[in-house]
């Protein structure tokens, strides 16, 4: 339980940093060049860490199913959809909707145990929890924020 939470928090913190870094790259080279760079580096780093820990077994592809090769394309769907959504709605609304959808589908996938996941039985408590979290996202994203003009400009 604690390990799982720590891992999720690590992932979330790195996603936050990555979004900030990527958006700086995005300004100059556009979203597909940025995506290519980001996924290329991610693959390279994964391979190097894997090779350090697992050595030559990184080259063994005997347990691959055909569809495993295609799961990487989902990431392309993510980028395409988010870029289009942000262009049309602005990032505040687009990200609020995307995060809500992320949680909704998470609950759905847990409840049905699709893709061989361990089923997490659906309870009203879980639905209420998710609704409160979604409420939190909306308050966070739509709440007014003032820019602080006194110090360093970007």
């Amino acid at each position: 339980m604690v390990l799982g939470l720590l891992m999720a928090i690590t992932a979330g913190s790195l996603v936050s940093l990555q979004n900030i870094f990527n958006s700086k790259v995005n300004v100059y080279v556009g979203s597909w060049t940025t995506t290519t760079l980001v996924l290329g580096l991610g693959a390279l780093a994964s391979f190097m860490i894997g090779f350090i820990f697992e050595g030559k077994s990184m080259f063994n592809l005997s347990n691959m199913e055909i569809w495993y090769w295609f799961s990487g394309l989902i990431g392309i769907g993510v980028v395409t959809c988010l870029v289009q959504a942000i262009k049309r709605l602005g990032s505040t609304y687009a990200i609020s909707i995307a995060m809500t959808s992320q949680l909704g589908f998470a609950l759905l996938l847990d409840s049905f145990g699709w893709l061989g996941l361990e089923k997490v039985p659906f309870t009203p408590k879980q639905l209420i929890g998710v609704l409160v979290i979604v409420g939190g996202i909306i308050v966070f994203k739509l709440g007014k924020r003032k820019e602080h003009h006194s110090s360093k400009a970007s």
């Binding site: 999720a8 980001v38 693959a43 860490i49």
Partner: peptide, 28 residues
């Protein structure tokens, strides 16, 4: 920034195995 992707994917997988999808996404 892209190099973080390695740790993000890794942590996400481990978290989902341990605490399920909903809790993982919520904490993330």
């Amino acid at each position: 920034g892209g190099t973080f992707g390695a740790i993000v994917v890794f942590s996400n997988i481990v978290a989902i195995h341990h605490i399920g999808v909903t809790l993982t996404i919520a904490a993330l």
